[in-house]
Computed example of a mutant assay.
Amino acid sequence: MPQPPYPSNPMSDPLIAKLTANIAAVFLGKPQVVQQVVMAVIAGGHILIEDVPGVGKTTLTQAIARSIGGKFQRIQFTSDLLPADILGVTIFDRNQANFEFRPGPIFANVVLADEINRTSPRTQSALLEAMAEQRVSLDDQTYSLPKPFIVLATQNPIEYHGTYPLPESQLDRFLVRLSIGYPDSAIEKKLLMYRQQNEPVEQLAAVLSLEELITLQAQVDQITLDESLVDYILQVVTATRTAKILRAGVSTRGALALVRAAKARALVQGRAYCVPDDVLELLVPVLAHRLSLGNVGQDIQTHRQESEAILRDLTADIPLPV
């Protein structure tokens, strides 16, 4: 595919490079994870991380919030958590003789939804409108969430007793699904040696403002996606919808998510146009969790492995544009 004669965006490159370097300074040894997270942040999407406890999910989320100078909130999801614990409540103020809305922890720029599958479907669904529309409806009133608004949710793929699998409608709201994994020996030694005295993420300073991030997110829409790549995405989506092994394939929302993610990756790479690698590298992170396997009761780790393997098999014979 010939590359359009568009120059790289000189205004966005330094900001994105600063954001990436700032996060990588405290989240060590995982450059690919950092790059994918930065891509999702630039795209304005939500992130689902499926991994065991203790691999740095909280550090990663705090690093994002501190790097953009945004408000950070962590919500620990438990079986007795209620929607009001997330969204907020309306109470009667006797002094003012009226009802007053007191916002919940969802009113932040970066929200860590820790172990999101440990709470009931009713509470999980409280996040749906917030994630999709960036607003909260309560007692016939609608409240806008701060901008930018990013949810980073976690699930433990091994321990699944007493959990509630996320409904497909909620999974579809996450732009990407990622896994961090354990650090290599050299990085882990460094963590053991130097993290005993201090927590580096607490020392992070903002490297771009919320307004600058919003501007970067708006620039994603200006990235060019060649028609041949659109046709490729449609072939991939169609393959998932017609595969007999799947109960349901990728929705139109999923296809749009892949388009936006590919554009965001191009912007992160300093280009004003997409190339085939932008789509190819994001097929699994963006689409695999949107496949419906129909295996009720399957644990998270097995579901992820099977969905990713099926997606790779389905797309192996679909030729990329050249």
Rank of each mutant, 00 (worst) to 15 (best):
V286W: 05
M11Y: 14
I180Y: 07
I16V: 12
L60N: 09
A21S: 14
E129V: 01
F99I: 01
Q76D: 07
L210Q: 03
V26P: 07
Y164Q: 11
T58H: 01
S125R: 01
T61N: 02
P276F: 08
A17K: 11
I23M: 00
A25W: 07
E50D: 12
K263M: 03
A205K: 14
E168Q: 04
K263R: 15
R94M: 06
P167K: 03
G162T: 03
V38Q: 06
E212F: 01
K30H: 15
R122S: 06
S228Q: 15
Q269E: 14
V55D: 01
K190S: 13
P200S: 09
S8Q: 13
R177K: 14
L216V: 04
P4W: 09
E133K: 05
G249P: 03
V41H: 05
S67G: 07
Q305I: 09
Y232K: 07
T123W: 09
F27V: 06
N295Q: 15
Y232H: 15
V110K: 04
T78K: 13
L229Q: 14
V52G: 11
A261Y: 05
K30Q: 14
A130M: 11
A24K: 09
E308T: 02
K147S: 15
A108P: 13
G297P: 10
N117P: 04
D313E: 14
N295P: 00
